[in-house]
Design a binder for these strands. Structure first.
Length: 294
DNA sequence: AAAGGACTCAACCGCACTATG
DNA sequence: TCATAGTGCGGTTGAGTCCTT
């Protein structure tokens, strides 16, 4: 079967765009707006593929594109976002105003990625061999934090975040061992559970991690204070309390619930995972938050 | 000054997802 | 339900530029 090409390749210009082509494209979009890329070249009088026009506009001509060197702050944010999101360049770019996914991808491949490669070939600590192969591989930078190198994958539409307090016992032993290892990072938190079952929370985490390919579990390993830079950079919505702990804002339907409300009745939390250890906590808003937060 | 290797980044490519009829 | 158009995304390429010898 196969798909028809997005446009006829014959007679089209390829390669670098000329100033005249840029002007034609910019003028056309300023008048008619974005979209309908397939028909744009013909209507605008450009001998270019629609996809090429879209790319040129989004990555170069669009107003607000920030050109020039990536700042240290931006680089730090890119690293942190990449740690959370993997190679989801468009998502990362969405948190860096004026930067494009292409630019960030190039920057990563030519700067950060290379630096990591150098680090991993030196004496820096190497990741433990994983007996239970996982989509992510870890590289270690010289500050000791780890970066997650993932093969970019899309989340299927039918694999939305489904958070439930129902316990499933269908995970195999390997999964349980792996997940318990994560939870052990927060063993202090687990000891502070007020009512409810730790096992229930662990099982919830196991199901959650299994479904979501570890992306969200990375979030749960961050404590609120560490997450503050995410807040400052609008990665997360929420507020900082007097102790500089981040309380994310959870949106549920048309109502908005702040975790401050949760903390008032349960005491201040020290990590995201605390929320999971309280069986009275309604996970559904968290699911919504997670879906909207990224 | 010249050659050629290294690097950068705009652009291309193919696949995947969504919308629509 | 299926086919197709439209769009978005990440990986890869290659021309131009920079750097080193």
């Amino acid at each position: 079967m196969g798909r028809s090409p997005c446009c006829s390749k014959e007679g089209l210009n390829k390669g670098a765009w000329t100033a005249m082509e840029d002007k034609i494209l910019t003028d056309y979009i300023n008048i008619h707006g974005e979209g309908k890329w397939r028909h744009l070249p013909k209507r605008a009088g450009l001998k270019r593929c629609g996809k090429s026009c879209r790319l040129r506009w989004l990555n170069y001509l669009r107003p607000g594109i920030k050109r020039g060197n990536i700042t240290n702050d931006e680089e730090e944010l890119i690293i942190r976002l990449h740690n959370l999101l993997g190679n989801r360049w468009s998502l990362i770019a969405g948190r860096l105003p004026g930067r494009t996914d292409n630019e960030i991808k190039n920057y990563w491949n030519t700067n950060i990625g290379r630096r990591l490669q150098n680090c991993s070939s030196s004496n820096l600590p190497q990741p433990d061999p994983d007996p239970n192969p996982n989509p992510k591989t870890r590289e270690w930078n010289n500050s000791g934090s780890c970066l997650v190198q993932t093969k970019a994958t899309r989340w299927p539409n039918n694999n939305k975040v489904i958070l439930t307090k129902e316990i499933t016992k269908q995970n195999d032993e390997a999964n349980n061992d792996h997940n318990n290892h994560h939870i052990n990072h927060n063993s202090d938190d687990a000891n502070n559970v007020t009512g409810g079952s730790i096992d229930e929370a662990l099982d919830f985490m196991a199901d959650f991690q299994m479904m979501e390919g570890n992306i969200y579990s990375e979030l749960f390993k961050m404590d609120f204070a560490e997450s503050s830079s995410c807040l400052e950079n609008n990665i997360l919505e929420g507020t900082l309390n007097n102790n500089n702990l981040l309380y994310p804002k959870l949106s549920f339907n048309d109502n908005t619930t702040n975790v401050n409300d949760y903390s008032h009745s349960h005491g201040p939390s020290s990590s995201w995972a605390d929320l999971l250890y309280d069986t009275g906590f309604d996970f559904q808003p968290m699911a919504t938050f997670m879906e909207s937060g990224f």
